[in-house]
């Protein structure tokens, strides 16, 4: 899931849950969904590891990617 989409959905869900007239079933469903999204975002934030690629453009216009190693 993309972080910005997740945050947007979470915000919408939260707003909806703050609405007094929401039916109970929908509230529970939204709450579950919100918690799931929040946990997924949190997990992405915690687990992410930066990827660094070095890009070389070849004569034929294609690109060659290699892992960039700082210790080089």
């Amino acid at each position: 899931m993309k972080i910005d989409e997740g945050l947007k959905q979470l915000e919408e869900i939260t707003k909806r849950l703050e609405d007094e007239n929401i039916p109970l079933e929908e509230a529970i469903e939204l709450f579950e969904k919100g918690i799931t999204i929040a946990a997924a975002i949190k997990e992405s934030l915690d687990q992410a590891k930066l990827k660094v690629k070095q890009v070389l453009e070849k004569a034929d216009g294609t690109f060659e990617l290699s892992d960039f190693d700082l210790s080089q």
Partner: peptide, 23 residues
Amino acid sequence: IAASVAEAVARALRGINQRLERS
């Protein structure tokens, strides 16, 4: 970003709590 997620969860919790109480 983690803080704003936590805040959204807290708001969602408050929201559903109130909803449950009313139910």
